[in-house]
Amino acid sequence: MPIIVNVDVMMARRKMSLTELADRVGITLANLSILKTGKAKAVRFETLEALCKALDCQPGDLLEYAPQEAEKV
């Protein structure tokens, strides 16, 4: 997948644990883990909005497009 999810980077910057973020965003730990490990196929706008709100960041801070990864695929 050429889209890289940088949730873990933002979590580290905000010094926020997985459990705390899951609580604030309102999703399960399992789903947050799927998102963090890049296994997710899609992200709902409302989840993205909640993540941005909880981590005080922009969608671009959480998602990154890596063309090299796309070429490999």
Binding site: I27, N31, I34, L35, K39, A40, K41, A42, V43, R44
Partner: peptide, 8 residues
């Protein structure tokens, strides 16, 4: 179903 399950 898979897509729906992996949509967060």
């Amino acid at each position: 179903k898979q897509e729906s399950e992996l949509t967060i």
